[in-house]
Simulated scan of single mutants.
Amino acid sequence: MPTTIHAALTRTVRTHDIAALGARYAAESEQARTLHPAVADAVVRAGFARHFVPAEFGGATGTFAELLDAVAVVGEGCTSAAWCAALQAAHGRLAAHLPRQGRADLWESGPDTPIAAAVVPPAGELTATPGGYLLTGRWDFASGVDHARWILLAAPEPADGGHRQRILAVPRADFSIHDTWRNSGLRGTGSHSVTVDATFVPEHRTVTREALAAGREEKDAARCHRIPYTLVASLIFAAPALGAARGALRAWTALAAGRTTAGGGRFFDDAVAQQTLALSSAEVDAAYLLLRRAAERADQAPLDDLPVALNMRDAVVAVEMLVGAVERLIRSGGARAQVDGEPLQRFWRDVHALAGHGALRLQPAAAAYGRWAAAEAGVR
């Protein structure tokens, strides 16, 4: 599917200048530890919530390349806004795996329905009951939950031969939010904890994790719903880091423009400053090429030969490069770069927090790639 079909998302993001809006309210979002209402509303209006919603409910059934570009634009102003935007789209894609009646429950009033999720690790207790399940428990790190109308929660389910995991869609009226998000980075994401107390969830609002991992099998399902979760999870979590690194480059350049060397010369004429800018900007560009290639695989690779290990490797290595680029910028930025309220130190905190996510760990990605490479080489 050509990635230009759904270019409307990036155009809308730029038209509404969500990057500037996120930057304008970044300090307030950090202080409140959740997105400013104006930013949260702009993310929905831009089309992130509907990006992967099935067309039958008015959604865009969009591409991953388009999502990458749009999230990166938002991230240039506020990483927290970009993180929530990326996950809002991703959670709509996960919800598209529910049975049709469950999908209708979520999107009966339209596709612009923000959905939060806490699916890794599974938690809580699930009890089968006629027509569905009773769900009780507590889940942590539900990003963007303050502005969500629904949440997807994962719980272990007893099954023959062991346990499996079931994903359940719960409406806002049936869960409680607890103000628990205190973090050094991504402070504005509002990644609070939620609890559910013996809430009934009908069978049609649930799906097994195995079904998510496999992707939808219906031949009429959109391309974005037929690919497995593992192919794109790392990519989606990496996308905000690209925007943050671009924002860090812009913030460093603004600081550098006002600096002079110890000898009174222009800071931009200093050899170390020039090397810092050249290396960091090239690493950011190279990381984008890796992420764009992973997105295009998700959009275009044959469904019977999806390179999950390659996508995991490229997304994780891209984030390693982006963290290194921002780290170099903050170190050369001097004391001014570390002042509270300075965008560069915010981007620096954000990329480090983001890189700690489980989906972006190097060891599992390297192990998966090693196994894939060995198989390709015929090593037994």
Rank of each mutant, 00 (worst) to 15 (best):
A337F: 10
L306I: 05
R349S: 15
L68N: 04
R266V: 10
V207P: 09
A239H: 09
G124F: 04
D299L: 01
R380I: 10
A82M: 06
Q31I: 04
E203M: 12
A123P: 01
A38M: 04
R149L: 14
D220I: 11
T180M: 05
L354I: 08
A46Q: 03
V170S: 06
T129W: 00
D17G: 11
A7E: 12
A26M: 14
P54E: 00
S143L: 08
S332D: 15
D105W: 01
A374Y: 04
Q88I: 02
A294F: 06
H178Q: 10
L255H: 08
A355V: 05
E210D: 14
A118T: 07
V71L: 09
D269T: 07
R103Y: 01
D305V: 06
T261R: 06
A142V: 13
C84E: 13
D304I: 08
T195W: 03
H16R: 15
I236H: 00
D350I: 13
R100G: 02
W107A: 00
P2W: 03
S281L: 01
S281A: 11
G161H: 10
M321F: 05
D340M: 09
P307L: 08
P228W: 02
E376H: 07
G77V: 02
A116Q: 02
P302I: 07
T180G: 06
R138V: 13
G265D: 09
A169I: 07
T199W: 07
G131E: 08
A355Y: 05
E327K: 05
A213M: 11
E320A: 13
E125T: 15
M312F: 07
L362G: 04
T276M: 09
A244W: 04
V232E: 05
D105V: 03
V196Y: 05
T129H: 12
G22T: 12
E56D: 11
P121W: 09
E218K: 09
A375L: 04
G58L: 00
L279R: 11
V201A: 04
A245I: 01
A40C: 02
